[in-house]
Amino acid sequence: MNVKLLAHTQLSAEFMVDLAMHSEMERMPDYTDGQAVALTAIRTCYSPNKPSEIVVKEGAKYFGKQATDGGPGTDADRLFRSIFRSKHLSTLEHLTFTFAIEGISRALLAQLTRHRVGFSFSVQSQRYVKLGSGDKSGGFNYVVPHRVDVTTREYFDEAMDAAQYAYDRLRKAGVPAEDARAVLPNATATNLVMTANLRALLDFYSKRKPGRGAQHEITQLAEALRQAVVEVETWTEQFFAEV
């Protein structure tokens, strides 16, 4: 399995120019683009200021002061914690993350796509991507389940070889790929692009993280997604820890 973050929420060039025009920004502490968007969304619900003004007029108050709840970080972190614990999570839907997810099983894909709200999927097609031994793909790759060990791996590989043989025979007999794919197993590897908002990812992680009874492969994916998000938006780590 390979998970790579392709894109995530960024402030627009036009908005950055607007911010740069205000002298107050020279004294503004560091913040991520995601934090700026989250602050704007949250404070829009409660502030008389316009959304385009919030970072300029309220940023120093939130990003420049120690958290007033006694917790770590700035008062922006305190605000984010308050929103998270009050379940006003629609404000976190404005942060999105797009991932390349490669080499997962079709079994995992079936589990993953049950998480529909806040997710978008573009999946490698078994109808158009031909998986015969003589095709560009060289045949289908497959994912070996966690509990198939050295004593049972031979049986598993034999089943995969038989599926490839059946697929190849069907294709040679003139059966189109869209019908021959019916013999491919759940272990068949696939690739996809997935976009999800932060609220959806937190919900996904709460159900699929290690220790919640999910299958091993999808817990690996949940961890990889969490790590990718936290790497670019470190302030979200506390929320993944609490779900």
Rank of each mutant, 00 (worst) to 15 (best):
L92S: 06
D77Q: 08
E53G: 10
D157P: 05
T40S: 11
L79G: 04
L131A: 05
R153L: 15
A13Q: 08
A162Y: 10
T96Q: 13
A7D: 13
H94V: 12
A107P: 02
A60R: 08
K130C: 13
F156Q: 09
G118D: 01
T113V: 14
L131E: 09
A224L: 13
T68L: 12
A100N: 14
Y128G: 10
S125D: 04
A224P: 04
R85M: 14
L109I: 09
A180W: 05
I42E: 07
H8E: 02
N186I: 02
S122H: 02
A38E: 03
Y155D: 15
K172W: 07
F63W: 01
P51N: 06
T195H: 06
K4V: 12
F97R: 13
K61V: 06
K209P: 05
L131W: 10
M21L: 11
D30R: 12
V37D: 02
V17G: 01
V144R: 14
D69E: 09
N2H: 09
L89M: 05
R106L: 08
I54S: 02
A162E: 15
F121M: 02
L170N: 14
V55W: 01
V3F: 03
E154K: 15
Q215M: 08
N141V: 02
P51A: 10
T188D: 09
V229K: 09
A214C: 11
L184D: 11
A76V: 00
D135R: 09
V37A: 05
T9G: 01
G139H: 04
